[in-house]
Design a binder for these strands. Structure first.
Lengths: 163, 163
DNA sequence: ATGAGTGCAAAGGCTTTGCATTAGG
DNA sequence: CCTAATGCAAAGCCTTTGCACTCAT
């Protein structure tokens, strides 16, 4: 659904970047990349673990961390519960997220070129005033997914209490 | 620095919204709001605890959670380490964050009207295709703060190992 | 053989919860 | 008085780390 602008092979790039920091592209790491490459939304560790033939949590975390250092994957921040991961921007293609404020579900979306351009062009000087060097941006669209909208309607007459 | 567009008294609004969910505007909660109202960046719990005459962690978390339910404060996502909090958008004024990708420091910034307009207007139909109802957006500018830029230069010749 | 990678289990850190006490309506 | 709010301590949960084993070079 989102832009799969993969000019070069993901595995090739992963291997190169790991080598650059003296790490191997081991089978476990390859499995992680395979799973992330197929995902249409950022994955939390349990999803990853489940999708990778139950790779142990420790390996998931450890390798994700190394892949992150290598610049192959990035940690995505959703609703604060737990960390989610996806391929780095240059491997996955620049895109943004739509986050459900109720259930935390995240999906990928592309954003019109016009807006992207404004974001990247107009902001550098703005943040420079604060002493920051602009490296990128993260635009999350916040809303309610169809499922949560529906269950909200259902319970709207019975619920007046907390949460 | 950022827009303090507080039309009405923060405490008044906080009190109302708490009442709406059958909660009181207790002194502890008032202290939290006072601290958050003065902050120029989202605060993590330790900062809050320190700033509120050492309100115990459990009270900080519990009341923050209740204030969040009441719609008075929101949880901010930084670099994943720990949760930070700030006043809800309508109390603090719409703004965005600049996040340092190295140390996680967050500061508030305002964004040109033109971009804000594009974000809010142009996106509804886009996310509607995915079954989402757009309620807002979160634009974080990612970069490196002056401090981290500096320490990065300093160690650039000695460091070739991992992290 | 030697060092990297793996996996299990234990430890760690932030956050949440139970329960008795205190305060407000 | 009765319920909400507080504080301390204990429990939980995600994540990280230690250590021995296995695999690749």
């Amino acid at each position: 659904m989102s832009g799969n602008h993969q000019r070069t092979d993901v595995h090739e790039v992963a291997s190169e970047r790991l080598n650059a920091i003296d790490q191997r592209y081991s089978p476990g790491r390859r499995r992680l990349i395979e799973v992330l490459a197929q995902a249409t939304h950022p994955l939390v560790t349990t999803e990853i673990s489940a999708a990778t033939d139950d790779l142990p949590q420790s390996s998931v975390y450890r390798n994700l961390s190394i892949l992150e250092e290598a610049g192959v994957v990035v940690k995505v921040l959703t609703t604060g519960e737990r960390a989610a991961f996806e391929l780095a921007e240059d491997l996955k293609g620049h895109h943004h997220h739509v986050v459900c404020i109720d259930c935390g579900r995240v999906i990928d979306v592309d954003v019109p070129e016009q807006i992207e351009k404004l974001l990247s062009d107009g902001m550098s000087t703005l943040v420079a005033k604060e002493g920051f060097t602009l490296l990128g941006h993260r635009l999350d669209l916040l809303g309610r997914c169809d499922q949560c909208s529906r269950s909200r309607r259902d319970e709207s007459f019975s619920t007046s209490s907390v949460k």
